[in-house]
């Protein structure tokens, strides 16, 4: 849930990276954390298992000074992708202001992507949220791997709702497209707040 603090001139928004297991959600945050100047970031908190799989969430606070006289803060979260962790996945969505759906571009993950997208819709509905009213973008990740589904196929499976959303082809481990995607969702979230 965004907060607008006129006393401190701060806007704070929550952005969640959602997607199936091993699609690269944590890799997005790791790349962002490694490549954002220290003054713009806090620590990357990862609640993960011993095997480095996300157990609850990753959390990375970012901020930019002087955004039209405000400090804009974005709190980035990931959800655990593994099916078994649905209860914790749902908790992370509480008060979400913007979503990045991270799809794994590999052909072998096509079904998991669709199931994860549907799972996101189901979990949003548990809070009475509808995707139509939440700014979101799609990220087709792992474009550096092979064999991968072409973008138009992923569009056909994931971007066929009434509102077509921006799509970013990325390779999160090396950073290709990661900031384009982050900037886009931040812009959408701020624009939505302005229109409130």
């Amino acid at each position: 849930m965004a907060s607008i603090n006129y006393a401190q001139r701060e806007i704070t928004c929550k952005i969640v990276y959602y997607g199936c297991a091993l699609s690269g959600k944590t890799s997005n945050l790791e790349y962002i954390h490694a490549n954002v100047p220290a003054v713009e970031k806090g620590g990357l908190v990862s609640l993960s298992t011993q095997g480095d799989r996300t157990l609850f969430f990753d959390f990375l606070p970012l901020e930019v000074q002087d955004v039209g006289g405000f400090t804009a803060k974005f709190q980035l979260y990931t959800v655990p992708g593994q099916v078994v962790y649905n209860a914790t996945r749902r908790l992370v969505l509480r008060g979400v202001d913007g979503l990045v759906f991270v799809a794994d571009s590999q052909w072998s993950k096509a079904k998991e992507n669709v199931e994860s997208f549907q799972n996101m819709l189901d979990n949003l509905s548990q809070y009475g949220y509808a995707l139509e009213s939440i700014p979101y973008v799609l990220q087709y990740n792992k474009r550096d791997l092979s064999p991968i589904a072409p973008g138009h196929y992923l569009d056909f499976t994931l971007n066929r709702r009434q509102r077509r959303v921006p799509v970013f082809e990325t390779s999160a481990t090396v950073g290709t497209g990661v900031f384009d995607c982050l900037n886009a969702v931040c812009r959408l979230v701020l624009a939505k707040l302005r229109a409130a």
Binding site: V64, L182, L190, L193, R194
Partner: peptide, 14 residues
């Protein structure tokens, strides 16, 4: 909500 900035196409990060 009033008085929020319009950032247009500005890149905030990266």
């Amino acid at each position: 909500v009033t008085g929020l900035p319009d950032i247009g196409e500005r890149r905030l990060f990266g």
